[in-house]
């Protein structure tokens, strides 16, 4: 199946997931255009990570479809996932390999062209030069996050999934990372789905955000204008107000 040049980077259509009779993701539909950075926010257990796992093909939807860059994930998993990459705190790179070794192994898995040059470029971008031959397990959590982000950009993915990418790092490094991701989306026209609990970050980085509650999109829009549209002073106030109102019973 050929990818269409005008296809959205990600199209999710009526996606649902039930676990033992409990609906975790409920009839979710949205799409992300190339170059767009979309924030996916919600309380713990709202269905964010479950949605990401379904997009990554490690969790089968109960129903619905995931189409990545015009390729149906269920029908052509390898081709679809070759256009995706991800970084998440719960998926650390093997700590017993060095930074370069990890990037080489995953670069080969993602069949990245000009791999050595790409690795060197990413090591520069994420300020990892002095750690290139250090085992990842010896790095601080912030450094490990930067290596994980470098891995996530190895194949210049059409769709980049970031699950709380700045959760464990200092404000300065987090700011640098946000700039890198913004730059990546603009330069490479890569789409980004970004989950975060940091509303300042969502407002600063995302061109659009969706607030997920009990597996459904509660509100969607520009994070800079949404609070005003709902009579709130800030995005954080809006999040707290809506989440408390609709999601008190949600569990992870």
């Amino acid at each position: 199946m050929q990818a269409s040049p005008v296809a959205p980077a990600l199209k999710i259509d009526r996606l649902s997931k039930n676990f033992l009779g409990r609906t975790v993701v409920d009839d979710l539909s949205f799409s992300i255009a190339p170059g767009e950075i979309v924030g996916l926010v919600g309380l713990n257990g709202a269905g964010k990570t479950t949605t990401i796992n379904m997009i990554l093909g490690v969790l089968e939807p109960t129903c619905g479809s995931v189409v990545i860059d015009g390729i149906d994930l269920a029908r052509n998993r390898e081709a679809a996932l070759a256009r995706v990459n991800f970084s998440a705190v719960y998926a650390p790179l093997p700590g017993n390999l060095t930074v370069v070794q990890n990037l080489r192994v995953f670069g080969m898995i993602y069949d990245a062209p000009d791999l050595t040059a790409r690795i060197n470029e990413l090591i520069e971008i994420f300020d990892l030069v002095r750690y290139r031959n250090t085992r990842c397990g010896l790095l601080s959590s912030g450094e490990q996050t930067r290596v994980s982000l470098a891995k996530a950009l190895l194949n210049k993915p059409r769709l980049l999934l970031l699950d709380e990418p700045t959760a464990s790092i200092d404000p300065s490094t987090a700011d640098t990372i946000r700039n890198h991701i913004r730059d990546y989306a603009q330069r490479e026209r890569g789409a980004v789905l970004w989950t975060s609990h940091n509303m300042y970050e969502v407002e600063a980085v995302c061109t659009r955000m969706m607030l997920l509650s009990r597996g459904r999109i509660l509100i969607e829009g520009d994070p800079r204008t949404l609070p005003g549209e709902h009579g709130m002073a800030s995005l954080e106030d809006l999040f707290i107000n809506l989440s408390r109102g609709h999601d008190d019973g949600a569990k992870p």
Binding site: N53, L56, G57, V58, R77, E78, A79, L81, A82, F86, A88, Y90, A91, P92, L93, P94, G95, N96, F106, I109, Y110, D111, K151
Partner: peptide
């Protein structure tokens, strides 16, 4: 087991590797 011990299965199976 190396992938199990290093919690690498998610990264492996979420990749285009068949």
């Amino acid at each position: 087991f190396e992938d199990v011990w290093s919690r690498n299965l998610l990264a492996i199976f979420a990749s285009p590797l068949s």
